[in-house]
Amino acid sequence: MKSKLLCLAFVVDVLTFCGPTFAHHGSAAYSNSVAVMKDAMVTRFTWNNPHCIVMFDVKDERGNVAHWAAEIGSPPAVSLLGWTRNSLQPGDVVTVYIWPAKSGRPVGRLNKVVFPDGKTLRDTQLGGGEEKKY
């Protein structure tokens, strides 16, 4: 039951996309549908090669917290999309769009983050595919 509730908190929406291709590393481990996680609290943001990593916590309505980690492109790649090493700070609350791992572990490939003011930072995988706009 707890899991179901947490799922409801996590999965506000499910969107379908064409699976993107990633510039440097593979996509085989990830689902090709995007999950949306609201009120995700950033705990760490690494600005590293081969991939920057966004770590965040998601809490369900009972206060149970899941610790997630999502990869994005490399700094040179995502900087072209407006990211900087200071784009995310611990404590930031954002909405995370993510392709979760098929393994069921709480990791995935980020699609985008949306800030409360609507500002959006997308990952590089929007390139090269026939993604649907939403």
């Binding site: 899991s3 799922c7 499910v14 549908s33 572990r105």
Partner: peptide, 23 residues
């Protein structure tokens, strides 16, 4: 971890997979 796992397992149940194949 089990909670998160359970969530994603549940998530998999509602994910609608695109008809497009991953590259």
């Amino acid at each position: 971890r089990n909670l998160a796992n359970g969530c994603v397992i549940g998530l998999a149940g509602v994910l609608f997979f695109s008809s497009y194949a991953w590259s």
